[in-house]
């Protein structure tokens, strides 16, 4: 089960290139060599400050968020055996949005509160999905989980509408901005813990790689191979959801990454879940940093919502994949 070493080089170099670009482009443009000098702490003190304090946290957050969303999507797709499964569809993001929007609308916007509220909301949504699934099917059947996720997601959307509909004038824009996703609030204090969390989450998914491979075969086949299907499905679902929740807490709602990046990774030739999770993580980081670059440059000085950019890229790609799939 191996993909050419070339692919890993390609992904690594692409990430490096896009990250360098992300550090170089901005109100004060820098050359790549200036960026590298600033990173190693030599040269113009202003450039060093711009790179290490302003742009680097943003780029690192982009990499971490993209990697987390894509790895989470890969794990969910394999566990639920559905190429459409992603954190967005499964209520995680909806729950996070409810938490964050409530915090914004209620005016509780002390530093760190909104991400915490988002994380709490996502956790609640995941618990709710597992409870609904248990009530409906009595076990963690993949179809039941999928449907429970969709239902909880719809419920969250309704709750957000209610919250926004009754919110005071000034707060709606802030809440909406958060819901559209942005890396603009990146600060080392928060980026650091989100990075730790995402690395730990991806490590778990890689550790469970063999389980994911077997779960992707289907429930009967997995049971025949000696896996406790319900328990392991629940475990992976919870792990992948927590991973997504952390990214949402860091950057708001960024759609389509968890959906399309795993498809890209598979199109690049990855097969086993370990390869797909790792390749997705790299490709997800590339995609989000690149999308952020687009979001903050095309209409400068106005910044576009990051979630909108990823969706604008994602929809055509998805249609293309769909066509390729149907054509076969």
């Amino acid at each position: 089960m191996s993909v050419p070493r070339r692919l890993w080089w390609l992904l690594g170099l692409a990430l490096l290139a896009v990250a360098t670009l992300g550090l170089a482009v901005g109100a004060v443009p820098l050359t790549p060599s200036e960026v590298w000098r600033a990173l190693s702490g030599v040269g113009d003190p202003a450039a060093i400050a711009i790179v290490t304090d302003l742009r680097l946290p943003r780029v690192v957050l982009g990499i971490v968020v993209g990697a987390g969303l894509a790895a989470s999507g890969t794990a969910l797709q394999m566990t639920l055996r559905n190429p459409l499964a992603e954190p967005y569809l499964l209520g995680v993001s909806g729950g996070a949005a409810v938490g964050a929007v409530l915090a914004v609308v209620l005016g509780v916007t002390a530093p760190g509160v909104v991400p915490l509220a988002a994380f709490g909301g996502a956790m609640l949504a995941v618990m709710l999905v597992l409870l609904v699934a248990r009530a409906a099917g009595g076990r963690a059947d993949s179809r039941v989980l999928l449907m429970a996720g969709v239902v909880v997601g719809a419920f969250c959307t309704a709750a957000i509408m209610v919250a926004l509909g009754t919110a005071p004038e000034g707060t709606v824009r802030g809440a909406l901005w958060w819901m559209m996703g942005s890396l603009g609030d990146a600060q080392w204090s928060s980026v650091r813990w989100i990075a730790c969390y995402v690395v730990a989450g991806i490590a778990c998914l890689v550790w469970w790689g063999r389980d994911l491979d077997v779960l992707a075969l289907g429930e009967d086949a997995a049971a025949s191979l000696g896996i406790d299907v319900e328990r392991v499905t629940r475990r992976v679902y919870l792990g992948a959801s927590l991973l997504a929740a952390a990214t949402v807490a860091g950057a708001g709602l960024i759609g389509f990454v968890g959906l399309i990046v795993p498809a890209i990774a598979r199109a690049l030739g990855t097969r086993s879940s370990r390869e797909t999770v790792l390749a997705s993580a790299l490709a997800g980081g590339i995609l989000v940093v690149a999308a952020d670059l687009v979001a903050r440059t095309v209409l400068r000085p106005t910044e576009l919502p990051l979630g909108a950019v990823t969706a604008l890229v994602g929809v055509p790609f998805f249609l293309w994949r769909l066509r390729a799939g149907v054509a076969r």
Binding site: R210, A216, G218, G226, R271
Partner: peptide, 21 residues
């Protein structure tokens, strides 16, 4: 078992190797 539709394609050899799980 009666039915099995792999959600994601695998090389036949890798699919068979999962029997060693």
């Amino acid at each position: 078992s009666q039915r099995e539709e792999p959600a994601f394609p695998l090389r036949a050899r890798d699919f068979i190797a999962l029997g060693r799980y």
